[in-house]
Structures are given as C-alpha cells and as structure tokens.
Amino acid sequence: MQKTLTKKEYQKYVDEKSPNSKLLRNMIRAFIVGGLICIVGQFITNLLKMRGLGQDETAGITSLLMILFGALLTGLNVYDDIGRFAGAGSIVPITGFANSIVSPAMEFKSEGYIMGVGAKMFVIAGPVLVYGISTSVIAGIIHFMLI
C-alpha cells in the first residue's frame, strides 16, 4: 500500500502548504500605526511640559489619557478594526493594554457585573500585572543587595 505519513512528516507537509503571514507588510503596518500612537503620546507629553508640569505628573497624565483613548475606541467598536490592520502596532502600546481590559469585560457582560465584567477584565491584564510587578520586586531586591 501507499506510504503513511508520520506526524513529523505531516507537520512538515502542512507547513509547506500553509501560507505564511505577510511579515514585511505586517511589520510596516505595525511600525506606522505603533509610531503614530506614540506620536499622540508625545504630543500630550509636550503639551503638558509646556504648561510647566513636572516629569512624573506628565508621565502619569499621558498614560492616563492614552488608556482613556484605548478604552473609548474599544467601546466604540473601532479598536478591533485598527488591530486587524496594525497587529502589534496597536497591541503593544498602552492603548492595547486598555483594549485587552475592555474587550473581555464587554464580551462577558452577559455573565453579570461581578463574575462577568469584574472578573473577566483581568484575563489578559492580570498576567501582565503579575509578571510586571513580580519582575520589578525581584529587580528591587537585587538592587537592594547591590547598593
């Protein structure tokens, strides 16, 4: 009878058959959209600095506004369209972090405000906080031992 493919051979065969994502095109899109989002952030920063605000306040208000934009655009059903075009260009900026909070919360609103909205808003943001904060604590302890 004809040969039977092993799992390994089949995976190789499938990889050959499956079209790849258009990496260069996607990278350019991510670069442009991600860059533009950062320009918005820079615009807010420059504006606040011109009004004489300090470094920390400026940074805080900038991220606050960027998160507000990200959340609003998600609510208005726009952010997913941006994401479909831009990929990482709209995932990586902090607006994407806001999107990752609002989108599951909206989706699971049908399961109520506590276990739906309240719990599901952290399905993606939760891990980000866990790993971000834990890394900073470890870094802080090492820093303490070094100084």
Binding site: N26, A30, V33, G34, C38, G41, A88, I91, P93
Partner: peptide, 14 residues
C-alpha cells in the same frame, strides 16, 4: 522608537 518596538512585536506574533 515606538514604531520599531511595535515592529519587533509583529515579528514575535507572525
């Protein structure tokens, strides 16, 4: 700088 960071993310995704 922002664009490059996002483009790196895109490489990771794809």
């Amino acid at each position: 700088v922002g664009g490059i960071i996002c483009a790196i993310g895109q490489i990771l995704i794809d």
